[in-house]
Design a binder for these strands. Structure first.
Lengths: 171, 171
DNA sequence: AGGTGATAGTTTCATATGAAACCAACGTCA
DNA sequence: TGACGTTGGTTTCATATGAAACTATCACCT
């Protein structure tokens, strides 16, 4: 497993794409995925910023609040794959901007419940169409079947990852 | 395009998923994509780090050097979707770790050409199988057809993005 | 009550990031 | 030749990030 020669011994030891000489970064799925995600996020970030002065974490929090208002910070953590530090800071900034308000939980003094202000709700309702429009644009090159396949693939991927990481991550 | 009412007029104006009340973050493709990419990157990052002490940018540079050695920093920028600051720093770190070496370009004094050291080549040849193995694991839940569909979808997405961004980005 | 361990959320601190400024070498045009 | 705009690459600086520490509350057990 540790070839020391300068020239790798290709062509016999691995079936396909298996030897170093034939590795192609641009066909490597994790790379493709990362580039695609970053580009899509970048496009959205620019649009959210230009139209509403929102960052992606801010938009994500608003999106979840829109689904489950009122919701606690940890509820948002569960539904966004963002860590709690980022959520905490994002909620603070949304509060400062006057888009959300925090209220004490009636019985549990640890929780803060977040909901829209009137202004936050308006922004939310205006930004949803922008988000969906951008999603459609980005998917414009794909047929309905291809889009479905892409979604299925991503969900499958996430499922695989949960299994793989579960071995090491469930503490 | 700018509804001012507090309550969105749902149910009639958009076919599906078109009004704020029905927006689902976890079905929003940019979000799915971002979560999937981050999780895959995270898994790889842990493995590269544990096995070889490499970060993802470092591995990306090594991957490109493995394809086109010797190559300049700007050549790597072109092939990795990383910005030149990150590439510059990553190459400096790879050089410090003794994995790559830099040489002056024979005729153009601006370019530095990077190639593997013996040690760097060894690491590269050992890390390629790890990368491919991880790719296979992550894709384990997908059939061959589904995997192809996912790849096609991602490439399509990237093509769409080039067109969309081209309008505003080609300076 | 009082101790103990878990949970919610914030703050600290060290590192990562990238836009913009910067330096150096190039090519070209007068 | 020598100004000038360009390109390759590094440095600066202000911001973003997240692990770990911290505070406060809760739930449970004695």
């Amino acid at each position: 497993m540790k070839p020391t020669s300068t020239v790798p011994s290709c062509g016999t030891d691995q079936a396909k794409r298996g030897c170093a000489g034939s590795f192609r970064l641009e066909e490597f799925l994790p790379y493709l995925l990362s580039v695609a995600a970053n580009r899509v996020s970048g496009l959205l970030a620019r649009r959210y910023q230009d139209a509403f002065g929102l960052t992606i974490p801010e938009w994500r929090c608003l999106a979840v609040i829109g689904e489950r208002e009122p919701i606690s910070a940890s509820g948002i953590v569960d539904r966004t794959a963002m860590d709690k530090v980022k959520v905490s800071r994002t909620l603070a900034s949304l509060e400062a901007k006057g888009f959300v308000q925090r209220a004490a939980h009636p019985t549990d003094g640890r929780l803060a419940l977040f909901s829209f202000t009137a202004r936050g709700r308006t922004v939310y309702e205006r930004i949803v169409p922008l988000a969906l429009e951008t999603e459609r644009e980005v998917l414009a090159g794909l047929s309905t079947g291809e889009e479905r396949a892409l979604r299925v693939g991503l969900l499958s991927l996430l499922k695989s990852l949960e299994e793989i990481e579960g071995e090491k991550n469930r503490f």
